[in-house]
C-alpha cells in the first residue's frame, strides 16, 4: 500500500453544487491516510454529502486543493482518462437508495463498473463477482429491478456496485440511516471486515470514510472522527477524544446527549 495520503484537502471551501456562491463548510483541512477509518459527523444539511462528493472529485470546491491518491482533482470537470483512473480506486455509496440505475437489474447494476473497466461480459462478471455477491447476501435478488427493493437492500446493492471494482478507498454517505436492527448489525460487521480486510472484499484493508448524522453507532475504538457543524470543520481525533469533548455543543447533539 502506498504511503501517499488517500485524500488530502487543504483550505477547501465546500460549496453548494448548484449554487457555488453558498458555502457549506469553510476551510476544510483533512488528511486521510491508507487504512484509516474516518467518521465524518454532522447534522442534516451540514454539508457532509457535498464534502464526500468534493473529496471524490465529483463536485467542484469553492477554493483550496483536493488531492486523491496524490493527484490534484477538480470536481465538475469532464473525465479525461486520468481522473477516471483515480476514481476507479475509490468507491462511493450515495445516501438513501444509493442512486441505482433503474433500467438495470440488481446484477447488472453491480456488474456495470466491473464490465466497463475490464471490457468484459456479464457472464465473466458473474463468475468474478460471485464471492462478493455471496458476502452481500444478494444472490436471490439478482434479477430484481431496483424499484422493487426496499431501502436497506437497495443500499446493499449500491454497496456492491461501489465495491465491484475493488476500490482502495470507500466513501459511505449515511450508511446506517433508516435501517432496522438486523441490517445495522450486518453493516457493523461489514465495516469491521472492510477495515480489517476480508477475502470477499479483495483481502486487503480498505480505507473507509463514513458520513453520519449520529456518532453513537459508529463510536468504536480505532476510528478517527471529524465534525461538520455550523459551517465549520473540526477534526476531533480518536474515540476517546470524542468522548472527552462531550461538553461541546456539536458533539453533544450528534451523540444524542441533548435528549
Amino acid at each position: 500500500m502506498s504511503d501517499l495520503p488517500s485524500i488530502e484537502m487543504q483550505d477547501v471551501r465546500v460549496v453548494h453544487p448548484r449554487n457555488p456562491g453558498v458555502t457549506l463548510i469553510e476551510e476544510v483541512g483533512w488528511v486521510v491516510r491508507p487504512g484509516e477509518f474516518w467518521v465524518v459527523a454532522g447534522l442534516q444539511g451540514s454539508g457532509k454529502t457535498v464534502l464526500l462528493e468534493t473529496a471524490a472529485g465529483l463536485t467542484p470546491q469553492g477554493g483550496g486543493s483536493v488531492r486523491l491518491f496524490g493527484e490534484e482533482v477538480q470536481g465538475g470537470q469532464r473525465d479525461e482518462g486520468e481522473a477516471s483512473g483515480v476514481r476507479r480506486r475509490l468507491g462511493l455509496l450515495f445516501d438513501g437508495n444509493g442512486r441505482l440505475f433503474p433500467s438495470l437489474n440488481v446484477f447488472e447494476n453491480i456488474a456495470l463498473p466491473w464490465c466497463y473497466h475490464r471490457n468484459a461480459s456479464l457472464a465473466d462478471a458473474a463468475e468474478a463477482l460471485a464471492p462478493l455477491l455471496e458476502y452481500l447476501q444478494l444472490d436471490r435478488l439478482l434479477d430484481q429491478r431496483p424499484g422493487r427493493l426496499g431501502r436497506a437492500w437497495a443500499r446493499r446493492v449500491a454497496l456492491g456496485r461501489a465495491l465491484a471494482t475493488g476500490p482502495e478507498l470507500l466513501l459511505l454517505d449515511n450508511p446506517l440511516s433508516g435501517l432496522d436492527m438486523a441490517h445495522i448489525r450486518w453493516w457493523r460487521t461489514f465495516l469491521s471486515d472492510a477495515s480489517r480486510g476480508h477475502a470477499a472484499l479483495g483481502g486487503r484493508p480498505l480505507t473507509l470514510i463514513a458520513a453520519s448524522e449520529e456518532l453513537r453507532p459508529l463510536l468504536v475504538p480505532g476510528r478517527r472522527f471529524a465534525l461538520a457543524h455550523n459551517g465549520r470543520w473540526r477534526v476531533l481525533g480518536s474515540t476517546e477524544d470524542v468522548l472527552s469533548a462531550r461538553g461541546d455543543d456539536g458533539v453533544r447533539e450528534l451523540l444524542g446527549d441533548n435528549d
Binding site: 476514481r87 444509493g98 442512486r99 471494482t165
Partner: peptide
C-alpha cells in the same frame, strides 16, 4: 428518461464509478 436520471443524481453515480457519461 435522461432528465430524470440527471435530476436523481444517476449521472454523478456514473462519474463516481469512473464511467464517462458521454
Amino acid at each position: 428518461e435522461l432528465g430524470t436520471a440527471r435530476a436523481l443524481g444517476e449521472v454523478e453515480a456514473l462519474e463516481a464509478l469512473g464511467i464517462d457519461p458521454i
